[in-house]
Design a protein around this nucleic acid. Structure first.
Lengths: 320, 320
DNA sequence: GCCACTCTTGCTCATATGAGCAGAAAGCCC
DNA sequence: GGGCTTTCTGCTCATATGAGCAAGAGTGGC
């Protein structure tokens, strides 16, 4: 038979009486024929041997310890980690992270005058979870192109409008495709007064909020028709792990295909890296690699993610 | 967006700081700008809304609340419920229950002078988990037949010897097949002096310890060759849910096939029902139905089981 | 607007708990 | 066995927490 230290067993019995039956340490002592100090010590030992697990089960709970470790390890200004426990599939998880991002955004001080945002499912979820009046007078500007190619892009516009409306601010769309076929077209559209104005507004935003996509056939850029899935396969072959504001990066956070990148309209990644507040919302099991690339290459100052992704980031596989 | 009461959210934030970051309620109050009394109240509300889950993770932990409910609901003398959390498959679960039964047996007062036992995988596990010297001078007697048909029955003997050895007592085997083909053979073997002696010893045991089998092709009685799987199928068709000391019972705890039962050697079920201490060890997802039959028909005074079975027993499906 | 009612808040006070310490017990080396 | 260190035990005392209460803040009826 398995031999277990007798004190260990006692500490379990004590924990059962103390936590499950809410008896006082004194009462537990009486039952187990121990002094109440001994009981206190047994409980303490059970705790630090990890036999007592206290979990906060709530969709809006957070994992503060993980958050602290993340900020320290990657030099972030802040991290928000939502728990995985009790989620039903990735939609649920994304919704939790979106809620976390919404809460964070609402608590951000100073309140940003202008908020630059990307678009996509995650951003749409964030707009959805923001409360009416989350702030007042925040203007929202799109930082990458994608209007009116199809419905998906339509939600891009509505995301911006929604976030702005709920903060009684103005939304400014970037009236341009995400990626153009020819460099010249891209250059001329960028020099158009309207587009240039939006881009400069985007460049001067006080904070950024964006998500990241996985490099794969279900990528938003493929669904929106800017790239074919063969294009994405090729990018993956060249090391792409995902896209950030329409730009494909590799594990080191470097642009995978510069010629493609030059034809992509919107804020450059360096602008995100230099921003004082740039919030990345990246959650889901499939996004571990992009999340790592974003965080390690300094693309964000604040990361909003889920427990699983956070644990993966802290996994010692890449540590010093 | 989902509307959640603001106090609820605050109580979650408070719980994170209090439980995960072990701050004092005062410190939490300072952070959330609340008085320490408000924090106390928020924590209390989080607790009773069930947002705080405290779990004791240890193979030898027990579920005292379930145990109490079981004893009350079914009028048992005692119940032992081992947790399911963290088990790897049914072997692990059975091992935990066996450990629980061993612990219970060792703590039983008064110490039984004679212990009647059945045999099978579960009982073997119990013998394995008993500590050397779990008691002194306990004699063990088999209460149902099954010696020397094959190895499985061989372990039947060793189970008895092991339990007795560890308590410095004698083991007495029941030298008879479990089931005989003809009633006359059964009657004559029972009247044999040796067998009759063992049976009377069994009938006078101060406590009984047995398990129950599921009525199915993998039943121990089939594996041991006493029944064919067709026999068992027929028993199932007639309402059998499982067997106890070699006797098949239905959901009401009644003998399914009296003519078969008359050819079965060993203690009758009524003897178990009248015993002052009869401990049933029944664990595993497949055994919910037998467990219910055993408990509701008063076959045991003490039930050792797992969380899943306990919850099934308390499931209001059969309640008043 | 005013009263009766309930719900919430901040308190006092009793109790439960953890830190720290001195003596007891148990190993351990010789 | 004697002296040594190390661990364990039961204590005192300071602190953290929960129960209970009275005053305050809302709320609805009229």
């Amino acid at each position: 038979m398995t031999t277990i230290d007798n004190d260990e067993l006692l500490s379990i019995r004590a924990a059962e009486l103390y936590y499950d039956e809410n008896k006082t340490q004194d009462e537990v002592g009486a039952i187990l024929k121990l002094t109440r100090w001994k009981v206190g010590r047994l409980l303490a030992s059970a705790k630090d041997k990890g036999f007592i697990r206290i979990e906060i089960v709530h969709p809006r709970a957070r994992r503060l310890t993980l958050e602290r470790t993340l900020t320290e390890r990657f030099g972030l200004a802040d991290a928000i980690v939502v728990p995985t426990a009790g989620t039903n599939g990735s939609d649920d998880l994304r919704a939790r992270a979106a809620q976390g991002a919404a809460d964070y955004l609402a608590s951000l001080r100073p309140v940003p005058r202008t908020l630059g945002i990307s678009w996509g499912r995650t951003l749409h979820d964030v707009s959805d979870h923001l409360a009416d009046g989350w702030a007042t007078g925040v203007n929202v500007v799109q930082i990458n192109g994608g209007v009116s190619v199809n419905q998906r892009a339509g939600t891009a516009a509505s995301t911006a409008f929604e976030i702005a409306r709920k903060a009684s601010g103005q939304a400014t769309l970037l009236p341009s495709p995400a990626i153009l076929e020819r460099l010249e077209t891209k250059q001329s559209i960028e020099s158009d007064r309207t587009v240039a104005g939006v881009l400069s507004m985007a460049a001067n935003a006080s904070a950024y909020l964006y998500s990241a996509g996985v490099a794969g056939a279900d990528s938003a850029l493929v669904e929106s028709g800017y790239l074919t899935s063969a294009d994405v396969d090729e990018l993956v072959r060249r090391g792409a792990v995902g896209d950030v504001v329409g730009r494909y990066i590799d594990a080191a956070g470097m642009i995978v295909d510069p010629s493609l990148d030059e034809r992509t309209v919107g804020l450059g990644l360096d602008a995100l890296r230099q921003a004082s507040t740039s919030i990345a919302v990246i959650a889901g099991d499939g996004k571990h690699a992009v999340a790592r690339a974003v965080v390690t290459s300094g693309l964000c100052t604040v990361l909003v993610t889920d427990e699983g992704t956070a644990l993966d980031l802290l996994n010692p596989e890449f540590s010093a």
